[in-house]
Structures are given as C-alpha cells and as structure tokens.
Design a protein around this nucleic acid. Structure first.
Lengths: 218, 218
DNA sequence: GTTTTCATGTAACCCGTTACATGATTCA
DNA sequence: TGAATCATGTAACGGGTTACATGAAAAC
C-alpha cells in the first residue's frame, strides 16, 4: 500500500507541470530527458500516477485527440488518459522544489533535482550544487585514504578500478565548480569556454509536447 | 526465501577466495575494494552468507584469534565466525568467473566483474571489456539521437545535464579502449602514459588480510 | 489484414535497506 | 567503568522490475 515514491513522484509532477501528458509519453520523457541516471517502467509509473490522483496532486482527463470517434460510442471507456497537474499539485511541487534536505544531493536524487533547475529558485540551486559538491568531496577523502592504506595489497585491476572511480568523482567536482561559478556570475558563461558550438542560441519556440517520434529503452 | 543474490554472492565468494574472513570484515572490504559502485549492509550480507553455507560453497569456522580465553568457557558459543571457501565454492566461483552473459557488462555487474579480473582468464576479460564497450556505444547513439531531436525543446539545465551525461559515457568508452589496448599488447602499458606518477612500482609484499584499521560508510 | 507501435494496467517477485536487538572487546 | 567499535543477526519495509494480460490505432 501507500506507494509513496519520492523521486518518481517528484519527476512526474515536474514533467506534468510543463505540460499535461498521458502515462506512456510520460515514461518516455522520464527515460530520455532525465535519462541515463534512472529508468522507470510502467510497473512503477502507473501505480504512482494512481496515488498522485488520490492525493489530489493530479487529475485524469479524457484525451480526445487521437481515437476514431466511431470507436467507442456506447459506454466504451478506454481513451488515452491525460494527466494534468492541479493547483494543489503545483503548490506541492513547489514545496518539494524548495526542499534542500541532505537527500537532495545523493546520487539518486541529484540528477532529477538538476533536471528541474529551470523551475528552481537560484538560492536553492546553489544549496543543492554546493551540497552535492561537499558530499563528493567527503567521498573523495575516503577513497584517497582507503587507496593510500591499501595500495600495496591490491592487484593492478582493483587499483585501476579505484583510480578510475576516483577520477570520475574528481571530474564531477570540477563540473560542479564550473556550474557554481556560473551561478555566481549570473549564468551564461561556460557556453563560450567550449569551442562555441552552435553560435545562434536564441530562445526558440519551446513548444508543448508533440508526439515527436522517439525511441524507447529496448 | 531462497535469497539468491547474484552480485553480492559473486563478490563474497571472490573475496573469500583471497582469504577467509568474518562477516564484519567482509562487509568493509565490499565497501572499499569494490566500493564507489555498490555498498552493502549487514541486512543483506548475513542472510547471503547463510545461503552460501547451505549451498556448500562456504563453511563457518571458529575464529580463535581474538576473544579472551576466559570469556566463554562454559558452552558460550559466540566467537567470531570466520567463513572459508570450500572446494565446491571455489569451483562454483570459477564457473561464475567464466560466464560472459550480457549481464556481465551492465552497470551493476561490470564493476564487480572488473574487480576480480585478476582471477579471470584473459579471453573472458576481453569479452567483458568489449561487451561493456559496445553496450556503452549503443547508449551513446541513443543519447545523441535523443539530444539531436529534442535540443530546442529543452532548457539550458536539462541540456547541460544531458551533455555532461554524454561526456561521462564517452569518457568511460575511452577508458575501455585503453584497457582493451593494454590487454592486446600484453598488459603493463598505460602506467607510463600518465606522467609517470610513482616511478618505483616494484611488486611489494602483498600481505594477507590484516585487521587494518579502517573507515566505514558512516 | 496483419504486424507494429501506442497505451494501460496488475501480480509476483527481487534485491536490497533501515531500524532494531544483542552482546563482546578495546580503549580512555 | 563507561564509551566506542567490533561483531552478528532479524523483521519490516521500500522502491523498483519482470512478465504478463489486454486492447486500440497506425503503418505496411
């Protein structure tokens, strides 16, 4: 029972805030926009949607767009179910966005939190980024200590694995440093540090969610 | 029931193969040697040990080393339990090592597989490394496609997240390329490619598992 | 007209954690 | 002698997946 999910719930609310969607599409966005870091299946998504409805954060709506009008004329309830964020849901999501508990910078949460930085206030962004960074720095210290202690007991492969892990974390710290710096100097730097790929960069239209033929986690 | 765990089982057998150990120490090694990638708690370790005993892969032994001899003279059974790999366990582990199912190069398994490359035959190592690489290359293609498709719909943060994810994967591919190359040219290169940090590198003693004061996942 | 993709859902299971309970050993 | 750490365990829960069942719409 209860099925309260934290991270999935958060992501769903965040996506629905941008535009109403039905489950199938929601899942696709979950696995691309927020992808790489987490993948969700219907087995978790649909139950989650159900509890969100019960909470009153979202509502089901009849998605009229597709579906041949001759299809289900007599009592046949089986159109696409489009979910829309309610006012309460919006409010709730904003509360979630404002939270900066230590969870926010853990591996599982950070990626999703970051994905919704566009809707997050600047000071919260800063807290999350800095929290993440110090979390990683703690980890670095431990790894280095452990590596120094056990260096001679380990075979080459274990050592190489350790070294690569260490470098990965160091790399993420550097990334965070850049991001934090960008936040401080008012955003927008960093695009030019890389060899100015794609010089245009006007806002563009930013349309709603069109079908947009796409892949899936095969 | 049953409690068969795959990855944890594999790691435990692998560590016990190097030296007999008791649970507490086992867990520490699990979270440092193989660390970063996975952390285990007693709640999973001890039940796992139990089933491994039932299977006959390992046996419990009285760890006599610590424990004041005056402590438990009368029937008091509560010394450290040292686990030792049996002949069957060894054989079983070697079978596991030889397996190169598609699981072997998934995120969760690869790190642990790599950690035991020292005990893995060269051709299996190659298959795992190459399997991992092509797995990641698949992922790269999807990410690039998705990025190309949705570039203008995404805000700067989502885009940056995507870009960073892409770079991370690219970086791991390069790492794998180096490793595969090393395997081909008979090992040992790659230490000199980096600016010869620590020029000594004589084998050293490589002692058994001493207590070795150490940290824990606080 | 049949295959593919879209779309919604459920039940059983899996692999692990958290929080707790217990006690021995070491150290200040 | 009390606190920290070592050491072993269990019960309850958690957050997800897999495999399955079902059916409509689109593409060929």
């Amino acid at each position: 029972m209860s099925r309260r999910s934290g991270i999935l719930e958060f992501a769903v609310l965040g996506l629905l805030r941008e535009a109403p969607m039905h489950g199938y599409e929601l899942r696709k966005r979950l696995n691309t926009s927020l992808g790489v870091f987490r993948a969700f299946s219907y087995g978790s998504l649909y139950p989650c949607l159900k509890t969100l409805v019960q909470q009153g954060w979202i509502v089901e709506e009849e998605g009229g767009a597709p579906q041949d009008p001759r299809s289900a004329p007599l009592g046949g309830r089986r159109a696409k179910i489009v979910y829309r964020l309610t006012a309460e849901g919006k409010e709730h999501f904003e509360e979630l966005l404002a939270q900066t508990g230590p969870d926010a910078w853990e591996d599982e949460h950070f990626g999703v939190r970051f994905a919704f930085f566009g809707q997050t206030s600047r000071d919260v962004r800063m807290r999350v980024l800095e929290g993440r960074r110090s979390r990683l720095e703690e980890r670095l210290e431990k790894m280095r200590a452990s590596l120094a202690r056990t260096r001679e007991r380990l075979d080459d492969y274990t050592l190489e694995l350790q070294r690569h892990g260490l470098e990965s974390v160091e790399r993420e710290v550097r990334w965070l440093n850049e991001l934090i710096e960008s936040e401080r100097t008012g955003r927008g730097r960093r695009e030019q540090d890389r060899q100015s790929q794609e010089t245009g960069h006007q806002p563009r239209h930013r349309g709603g969610a069109r079908p947009d033929s796409s892949d899936d986690t095969t």
